[in-house]
């Protein structure tokens, strides 16, 4: 798998009408071209859960860029490794998140990515219907784009 960049897929997720929740999509829009030049596949989408199966099938590595709200400082970047199989321990009864999707793929023999990394961006305001970011996130956006790019480039090198 080393060096085979086409085995890697980068997702940028979010809802374009939920203000700060669109941060992943915005960063994706700005990085799409640069990342494709590095030879990786990029998906910028509002889809989630089960719908991601089609894209993840057969990949070695998936990187997901998405908004998170954990209570820390807006603009902070959290990196989570979702690859580990503890996913089985958090199987929600009636909804599918990434860990559930991975587990489902595995049991159906659909080979999920071996490595799944979430780059979570702490947002300021998750509850406002708006097609723009809050001022604080708007201000942070240019720097976030670069920091996310650096993170992804690092992950690609390590892949």
């Amino acid at each position: 798998m080393a060096g085979k960049k086409q085995d890697l897929i980068v997702f940028f997720l979010g809802n374009p009408l939920m203000g700060d929740d669109s941060i992943g999509l915005r960063i994706g829009g700005m990085l799409e071209e640069r990342l494709r030049r590095l030879g990786v596949e990029v998906v910028v989408t509002s889809e989630s859960g089960l719908s991601l199966i089609d894209h993840m099938h057969g990949r070695d590595t998936a990187i997901i860029v998405d908004a998170v709200s954990t209570g820390s400082k807006p603009g902070r970047i959290h990196i989570y490794d979702l690859s580990d199989s503890r996913a089985g321990g958090i199987m929600a009864p009636h909804y599918m998140g990434i860990p559930e999707v991975v587990k489902l793929m595995r049991s159906l023999g659909l080979s999920p990515p071996k490595k799944i990394i979430l780059i979570g961006i702490e947002i300021a305001e998750p509850y406002v219907v708006s097609d723009s970011l809050t001022p604080i996130m708007k201000e942070k956006l240019p720097r976030l784009v670069e920091r996310v790019y650096v993170e992804i480039a690092r992950l690609i090198r390590e892949n």
């Binding site: 929740d21 959290h78 979702l82 990434i98 979570g120 998750p126």
Partner: peptide, 12 residues
């Protein structure tokens, strides 16, 4: 574990 499920992005 909100941080390990990116689909559950929201705190509420």
């Amino acid at each position: 574990k909100i941080e390990i499920n990116p689909i559950t992005r929201l705190e509420g």
